[in-house]
Amino acid sequence: MSQAFTKAMARNIFYGGTVFFLLLFLALSFDTVSALPKRDNRANLTEAVAQGKKLWENNNCIGCHTLLGEGAYFAPELGNAFKRLGGKDGVMAFIKSRPAGGIPGRRSMPQFNFTDAQLNALAEFLKYSSEINSANWPPNVQG
């Protein structure tokens, strides 16, 4: 007498299905990694951009902002901040002009006391990020 629904079959589906979809995922990931050079703006990944990314990480900017929609939702999206703030000078001036004590009653960005070279690197990083092909996201300049 056989059962309608056996544990052995459920087990086989678990192992078989997992291996099957893991392989499929790896195949798609392989295709993605080989398709990325056309989309990820790596041609403009300069020394300054790399330094800017490190500054972005070392100051935990993602703890307030999103970048390409990922991060915290406390402060504006930065994937297109380069465009919104009017290019490099706009970005550098904004970061530089944050008051150390914050703005009373409002959400404030800290004053990080960056050097000019660091400000330049951050702006370069945001420029590079804004040129990644993100399938037209965000929907508009407000992010």
């Binding site: 935990n60 900017c61 993602i62 703890g63 307030c64 915290a72 402060a75 914050g102 959400r107 800290p110």
Partner: peptide, 12 residues
């Protein structure tokens, strides 16, 4: 927005 700023900023 300025609650505990800058002692414990939001990101921290």
């Amino acid at each position: 927005g300025d609650f505990l700023f800058p002692e414990i900023p939001f990101n921290v």
